[in-house]
């Protein structure tokens, strides 16, 4: 575990990665200066599959020994649209971020799938990693991302009849004034 800078590489496993050519590793590190003190830093790739190839890329990693899907979450880039992405990856409003973990080689890989606002549908990787069941439901609940093929894509944290998806950037943060019991009302 040396302090090697994190690389943004093309997928060495599945030949279906849409990132053409070597991505710029300098501009897209995970953070600032490298340090071996930080977990997850030394060996982590970031891959940008397009939506159509997302499932097959995940399957490729699964076959390559990434036993566990450790995390899946959504990000809404509405007000930070022009973030740094490698060439050939057009930015879209939403991203699905998947962190895979290989226990045998102690490696992590992160997949970032771009999803346009007009068509918020990605394939569910439930059949590859059943552990994403709750995580995909959470991403659906919070961002409205549809995971096609998920066995039970319902709200998980918000009430069933809730309208809207709270972690979207255009979802207002409401404030409820604090009411004390017995406090005199406005005159």
């Amino acid at each position: 575990m040396t302090g090697a800078a994190e690389t943004t590489s093309v997928n060495p496993v599945a030949p279906v990665n849409p990132v053409e050519g070597p991505a710029d590793t300098a501009g897209l590190s995970d953070s600032g200066g490298g340090s071996s003190r930080f977990p997850g830093r030394p060996i982590q790739e970031i891959v940008f599959p397009i939506r159509e190839q997302y499932l097959s890329v995940v399957q490729g990693y699964r076959d390559d020994g990434f036993e566990m899907c450790i995390d899946l979450c959504g990000v809404d880039y509405l007000t930070h649209f022009n973030r740094q992405l490698p060439d050939g990856v057009p930015p879209e409003r939403f991203e699905v971020v998947v962190n895979l973990l290989s226990l045998s080689t102690a490696r992590r890989v992160r997949l970032r799938v771009q999803l346009p606002e007009s068509d918020l549908e990605a394939a569910s990787i439930f059949d590859v990693y059943p552990g994403v069941e709750a995580m995909e439901r959470e991403a659906f609940d919070m961002f409205g991302i549809i995971f096609a093929g998920h066995p039970d894509l319902t709200r998980i944290l918000m009430p069933e009849d809730w309208e809207g998806h709270p972690l979207r950037k255009d979802y207002g943060v409401g404030r409820v004034p604090v009411q004390f019991k017995g406090a005199p009302g406005p005159r």
Binding site: D71, D76, Q84, V97, R110, L167
Partner: peptide, 29 residues
């Protein structure tokens, strides 16, 4: 600006934090 995923071993398992910064003083996500 940037994104990072950091994980530690909490008493219950892997506790991870995926942090997205847009360069401001508040986390973007």
């Amino acid at each position: 600006e940037g994104e990072v995923y950091v994980a530690i071993e909490s008493p219950r398992g892997e506790l991870g934090c995926y942090l997205v910064s847009d360069g401001s003083s508040k986390p973007y996500r």
